[in-house]
Structures are given as C-alpha cells and as structure tokens.
Design a protein around this nucleic acid. Structure first.
Length: 721
DNA sequence: CTGCTCGACGTCTAGACAGCATGTC
DNA sequence: CTAGACGTCGAGCAG
C-alpha cells in the first residue's frame, strides 16, 4: 500500500481502508480521475477526499478547493483538517464563508480552501485569481443540486469551475441517489455507489407497542406509556442516546417537554447537577430570556433538548456539544440536523413522515431525506450497531412504510436550473464578470450545465434567458453593442453585491424617488425583497392592526401600496409586519417583547437582521453610485441602529467596544449621554453602572485620542467551546 | 354566578446562503 | 386532489 495512505490512516486512527475507499482508489482517485461517490453518511467519504487532497498537494498538482452547503459544515471540516494535517504536512488550510473569512486576497497563499457554494460563486465573480491554480475540487452533498432554492447556484458554480480549470480533478460526494451515473456523465467521470456503513444499521418500524426489524429481533414496549416515551425508556435502559425527527418546530418543543418526565428518572445525581449548569447557560444566552429560552432550559434539566432554527446558534451549538459528550440523552429535532454535522446517536426515530407543502397539502418526505435521517444512527467508536425506527399507526401502515422507505430506492435528482430568479442572478453574473459576452456564449455556457446534460435540451432555458436579458437591459444593468453584451457599472456592482437584480431595480427606483428619508419606508422596502423571503406569516388577528398602520403611514412608503385584492398585497402586508418588527428592535424592544408581540423567535430575528444588514449595505452602495449624497448618512445610521438595536440617541455610546444596547442604555439612563461626558465621569461612578472591569475597559478606550485601533481578526479568535 | 370540560372550528406549518468589517451580556 | 396537531371559544354542566 502507498506510504502516504498508511500515514493518513494512522493519523485518522483507522486500521485499513474500507470497501468504498478501496473502490475509489481502484478508480483512479490518486490519478486525477473524476469521480462521483454516492454512499450513506459516515461511510468514510471524508477520508476519501482527504487522501485525494493530501495527495494532490504532495504532488504539487495545485490547490484543493472544498465546497460544502452549510457554514457549520465548513467550520467543522476546517477544524478537523487543520487539526489532523496542517502541522503534519506543513500545509495551510483556510476557510471562507459569510461569517468566517480568511481575507480573500490572502486565500492565494493557502493550499486547501474551504468554502460554501455561494461564497465560491462570489469569489469567482470577484475574479479571484487563485482559482486557476486549483488542482482538485471536492463538492460535498452534491445531491442538493436537486434543491430548488440553492441547487442552481451549485450547478452554475461547478460548471464555471469546469470551464475555468478544465484539467482539474472533480470529486463529487453524494447521499445515495438513483441517478449518480448521470452526475458522473456530466463531469465525465466514474460512479462509485455503495451502501457500506462502518456501523451496522438496523432499520425498523414501531406499531402496536412493539418495534420490529427486518433482520433482527425486535423489542416489546410498555403499553401504558405513549409510544415515544416507551421508546425512550427502552433506549435509556441500554444507556444509549436517541434523536427524534419531527415535522415542525412546535412539535419538537412539545415532544421534548413531554419526554422529560421519562428521561429524568434515568439520570444520575451527577448528571442532574451538570444538566442544571447547562440549563443555566442556555437560559442566559440573551439579556432577557424569552419564554422559549426558559422552556428549553427546563427541558435540558431533564436531559432532553429540542433543536431547530428558531433557536439562537449559540444554544444549538451547546445542545450539539453536550449531546456529543453524552450528557443530554435525547434530542427532538426538525430537519435542521439532516445534513453532515457529526452528531450520531445510537438510535434515530423518524416520527413524522409527512410534511406540509403550501398548495399541495401534506406530502410524504422523499426517501433521500429518510435515509439521511437514519444515517445518524450508530456512533462509530461507541456502538457496535445502530437502530432506526419509523413510527406507524398500525400494521398496514407499517408494511407500506417498510416497502417505501426501508426497502425503497432513493429518488432521482433533477436539475432545477430553469427557475427564473436564480437564472436572472446568474445571467447577470456571467455577463458582469466578462465570462459571457454574447447571447451565443451564454447559450454555450448553459449547454454545459447538468440541466443540459440531463435533459439534452436547453430550449426552456434559452427562452427564459432571452426574456431576462430584455429586462436586464431595461433596468440598465447591461447594454448591448452590436452583437456584444456588456454589464454597466451599476450592473457590475449589483452582481458583486450578490443581490437579485430585481431587488436592485426596486432599490434604485425607490432611491430616485426619495426626497426625505422615512425610516419606516426603508425598513419596509428592504423587507419586501426576494432576499427576505419567505416572510413570517401574518396572523389573521394582526390583519386589522396592520391595515391601520398602512393607513396611518401611507406617506412613508416608497412603493406603491397595492390594493387589497391585488396579488402582491399578501407579501406587502407581511413586509409591513416585518418592518414593524425591525422598528421595535431599533426602538429597543427586547427579544422577548418581539416574541410575545409578533411571535418571532430570537433566532429568526437574528437571521432577519443579518439579511437586513446586508441589504442596507447594498442600498447604501447603490445610493452612492446614484450620487444620492443627502441620504447616505441616514442609511448608514440606520444600519448601525439595526446592528445594535438602539435608538438614535445611543449611537455615540455603542461605538465603544464592549458596549452594546444594554450597557449603552444603562449608561445613558445614569445621565451620561455622550463620549464627552463619559470622559469626565470618574471611574468609580462608572464602575457602579457597568461593573469595574468594563468601566476600566471603557476608560482605557477613551485614553487614546481619536485613533481607533484596527485589529486583524484571525480565526483563532473564534473558539466555539 | 363561577369554573371546568369537551368538542367544533379555525389556524398554522423546515432550513439558511451572500457583502463588508469586526466584538454583546 | 391531499394532513394533523394545537389553540380558542362557546356550550353545557356541576358546584
């Protein structure tokens, strides 16, 4: 066996290669052959690309580019690779995602670069030179190319990479899908399909108080408990952990609450003590805990936690960490945990197999999703096998579910490229980065996509693209000279800002119209964009109130108010609600106020504010290009207020480090209303307001003249645990 | 008159990427 | 064309 592989095996703590890995080697993994590998989670796909990556670097075949769909996944992979290989092989590993960025210019100096798909797209648009030096491209979770929202970006990004670096090796990693061959055909490579798992998985069904497996003896359950409880009881008797997948957030929270009663009987005093600490930590993530935080904290005391996107990421990370450590026994989750993330449990229960789709009602989830869920069953170094359980109502249903999910074949994946908004974004991007300079070259590009390969026909795309080009011209983002198409200055900027050209068009239209700025109007403008969608629902009770707001503030709006019977009215109403939420935020409402009043969870609010920040920045940049000097300052101010969630009067105070909305308000209330006054206040008095440490810190910051020190942030500064 | 239970009816539903420049309680 | 859990509100009943 190759010396290098031996060394890598040792580092990763494996004894020998598994069948999938052998297969990959046989098919030219180290010889630069393109491969599609379709196998279950935890089948050792990571190790395959690690071998390929290190080999590429060792033979100086160029950089390695790793693309994953989630920031969390990138972060996990980054830490893992760094720990294992950076020192050992003297290679430099970098991460570049929306929240962590090893400054783009420097990326050229790194050997192995980890990015999200959108970031990769953005880097290409900004013309990153080092892309040319990439010798191996690894795309993780490639089956997401099927997703309507983000798949096309992935598809276009891969196509562009293929065009820029034609000799480069491509390694596509996928969940088990039906048509992996098609993907392989597209990238002109070979397919490796396998069902190998390092830990044996037994898939079963639960009905009539028993769990039945296909190829293993089942369990009899307590009949006097609800199903979920008796499954948990059965699990805890083996001293094992379990994850439940359910359909909605509410159900996840509810189930966690319910299961606490059963779980707490199995906790040792030590565990109870540790859980109380954890509970406390989870409770105090916010200035004022919301009802939701309190509920989660209560559950955690019993060794159970729910997990979904409505929580703050810090809370989620805590839950994941302590489940991994074995302290938490049960997680009830929505599909947040579907992808990647190393969070296995001995047992996985898929409780809700139907999910609601607007306009279609409740539909069964795809087999791929089911397989991804149960892929988490079995912790490689702890369990000698894993178990997954579907909950059925009766024997009849159980048989159907076994047939469909356990024995069934995963679906085909199909290209979703012909979807308008995304095609619009990419058409402009292709033109703006001079990648395509005519209709013909655009069509030539699209003919190299997975869509074209799969359907052998790009007529639909052609039609849509021509329509899009017409609009982009109308909006003055592109111009055509003779047969050539070119982006205008503003078109280029729009493409770089990574916003939908349609959003940019609305922004520009509004900016041209605006004379005096109305904050509410701006807030509504950024709320009614593609980027902000899907907007939180308007409850029927809120309807009247919102209509009143609309009437009262009629003059604020930058867009024309649609009529109640217009199609856009629904979105308009939602955007007004969103604007009200933002307004409360910058008027210093707490997260709990917002949760109570608008039913928007802290996690969701945080997410929206992030989008708002990005859109406000874009709005500012467009105003700059339009020479709307008079409103630049106002937009900037609004952006800062949104960032901190403060009224205008606190703006001077939040400029200080370690002073956010809470401390700033405290200081202000004590009568200190400006930096000037703050300088005069004796440190003793300030200590009483914000505590001695912070007081000293503030005073130190004021010592220096006006010079603001800029710190170059490295990733070391972000430690998660 | 008050407080409770029950059922009919109505309501609501998963997730998360990007720009830029850096730090809350 | 298609679901199902949960909240709300009013009716009906006991105290």
């Amino acid at each position: 066996m190759n010396k290098l592989i031996k060394k890598l095996l040792k580092i990763s703590g494996f004894k020998k290669l598994n069948p999938v890995q052998e297969e990959a080697l046989k098919n030219g993994l180290l010889e630069g052959k393109n491969l599609v590998i379709a196998s279950p989670t935890a089948s050792g796909k990571s190790f395959i690309f690690e071998i390929a990556g290190i080999n590429t670097l060792a033979n100086e075949r160029g950089k390695v580019l790793y693309i994953a769909p989630l920031r969390a996944l990138c972060w996990e992979k980054y830490q893992d690779l760094k720990r294992k290989y950076e020192k050992e092989f003297g290679i430099k590993i970098a991460i570049s995602t929306g929240d962590f960025d090893s400054s783009d210019l420097w990326l050229a100096r790194y050997d192995w670069i980890i990015v999200t798909c959108e970031k990769c797209d953005s880097l290409i648009r900004h013309g990153a030179e080092w892309i040319k030096d990439v010798g191996l491209v690894i795309v993780d979770e490639i089956h997401l190319i099927d997703q309507i929202e983000r798949g096309p970006t992935l598809e276009v990004t891969i196509t562009r990479l293929k065009e820029i670096i034609q000799k480069t090796q491509f390694l596509l990693l996928s969940a088990t899908i039906k048509n992996a061959d098609e993907l392989a055909g597209w990238i002109n490579g070979k397919t490796i399909v396998s069902n190998y798992r390092p830990v044996k998985l037994y898939e079963g069904v639960c009905y009539n108080s028993k769990i039945v497996f296909l190829d293993k003896e089942g369990y009899k359950l307590d009949e006097d408990l609800p199903v979920e409880d008796s499954i948990v009881k059965n699990t805890l008797r083996f001293k094992k952990q379990i994850i439940f997948f359910v359909g909605t957030r509410k159900r996840a929270e509810k189930l966690a609450e319910k299961l606490g009663k059963t779980v707490k009987k199995y906790l040792t005093p030590n565990e109870k003590r540790d859980l109380n600490f954890l509970s406390e930590e989870i409770l105090n993530v916010l200035e004022v805990p919301t009802k939701q935080c309190k509920k989660l904290a209560e559950c955690v005391k019993n060794g159970v936690a729910s997990h979904h996107a409505g929580y703050l990421s810090k809370q989620r990370i805590l839950v994941e960490e302590y489940f991994r450590k074995g302290l938490l026994k049960v997680i009830t989750a929505t599909p947040t945990l579907q992808l990647g993330l190393n969070l296995p449990a001995w047992r996985v229960v898929v409780r809700d197999l139907k999910r609601y789709h607007p306009g279609f009602g409740a539909l069964y989830i795809p087999v791929i999703d089911y397989k991804q869920f149960v892929g988490r069953a079995g912790r490689p170094s702890y369990d000698s096998w894993g178990e997954s359980i579907i909950i059925a109502r009766n024997e009849m249903e159980a048989e159907d579910l076994i047939e469909h999910y356990i024995l069934g074949e995963p679906e085909k994946i199909t290209s979703k490229l012909a979807v308008e908004p995304i095609l619009r974004v990419h058409t402009l991007a292709l033109i703006a980065s001079d990648f395509c300079k005519s209709k013909e070259s655009l069509m030539d590009f699209f003919s190299k996509t997975f869509y074209a390969y799969q359907f052998q026909d790009i007529e639909r795309i052609k039609e849509k693209t021509f329509e899009i080009i017409k609009n982009l011209k109308k909006w003055k983002f592109i111009v055509s000279k003779k047969r050539k198409i070119e982006a205008t200055r503003i078109g280029k900027r729009v493409s770089e800002l990574y916003i939908d050209p349609l959003t940019a068009y609305f922004f520009i239209k509004s900016l041209k119209k605006v004379k005096k700025i109305e904050l509410f109007g701006i807030l509504q403008l950024i709320s009614n964009t593609v980027e902000m969608k899907p907007l939180p629902n308007v409850k029927s009770k809120e309807f009247d109130e919102l209509n009143e707001v609309i009437a009262e503030r009629e003059s604020c709006f930058l867009q024309k108010i649609p009529r109640e019977w217009d199609l856009e009215f629904d979105d308009f109403l939602k955007s007004v609600k969103m604007a009200l939420v933002f307004e409360s935020w910058i008027n210093e409402a707490t997260e709990d106020d917002i949760l109570t009043k608008f039913k928007i969870t802290p996690g969701e609010l945080r997410g929206r504010l992030e989008i708002a920040d990005w859109l406000l920045y874009s709005l500012h940049e467009l105003a700059l290009l339009l020479r709307k000097k008079s409103i630049l300052k106002d937009i900037k101010k609004l952006r800062v207020r949104m960032h901190y969630g403060v009224k205008e009067e606190l703006l001077p105070l939040v400029k200080l480090k370690n002073v956010g909305r809470v401390r700033a308000r405290k200081i202000w209330l004590s009568g200190i209303k400006s930096i000037k006054e703050l300088r005069k206040v004796p440190i003793e008095k300030l200590s009483k307001i914000v505590g001695p440490n912070i007081a000293k810190n503030i005073k130190d910051q004021l010592k220096g003249k006006k010079v603001k020190e800029r710190k170059v942030l490295t990733l070391k500064d972000f430690s998660f645990s």
